[in-house]
C-alpha cells in the first residue's frame, strides 16, 4: 500500500511501496510542486525505477526555475539503489 501526503510543514511524506502501479498516485501530488521541497522517505519501504524516474523528472522540472527536491531518511536498500543509479550525485540526500 503506497501513500503520499503533504504535512503541515509542506514536507512530502511517502509511505509503503512505490512501484510502477503507484506512479500516477505519486505524480498527482508531485506534479503540483513548483518550488524547492523536502521529501521524507522514513516510511517508504520500497521504490522501483518507475518511482525514481518520476522523482528525477520532477527534480529536472524544478531545476529549470532554480528549485530542487531534497530527500531524507532513505532506508539502506533505497540508499543502495539511489547510489547505483547515480542519484546521490543529483539529489541532496540527508
Amino acid at each position: 500500500m503506497f501513500d503520499i501526503k503533504v504535512d503541515d510543514n509542506k514536507h512530502i511524506i511517502l509511505s509503503g511501496r512505490l512501484d510502477a502501479s503507484q506512479v500516477d498516485k505519486a505524480n498527482s501530488v508531485l506534479n503540483l510542486i513548483s518550488e524547492s521541497s523536502l521529501i521524507d522517505f522514513a516510511d517508504l519501504e520500497y521504490i522501483s525505477s518507475a518511482g525514481m524516474g518520476l522523482l528525477l523528472a520532477v527534480h529536472k522540472r524544478l531545476s529549470e526555475s532554480g528549485h530542487k527536491l531534497k530527500l531524507r531518511n532513505l532506508n539502506n536498500h533505497i540508499n543502495d539503489v539511489f547510489h547505483y543509479a547515480g542519484f546521490d550525485r543529483i539529489f541532496e540526500i540527508e
Binding site: 522501483s48 529536472k60 547515480g86
Partner: peptide
C-alpha cells in the same frame, strides 16, 4: 551514464541497470 549531470540524465533504462546491479 549514471555520472551524467542532471540536465543530461535520461529517464528510461534505469530499471535494467538496477536489475543488473542487484
Amino acid at each position: 551514464d549514471t555520472k551524467a549531470p542532471l540536465g543530461e540524465r535520461k529517464i528510461g533504462r534505469l530499471g535494467l541497470l538496477l536489475t543488473n546491479k542487484l
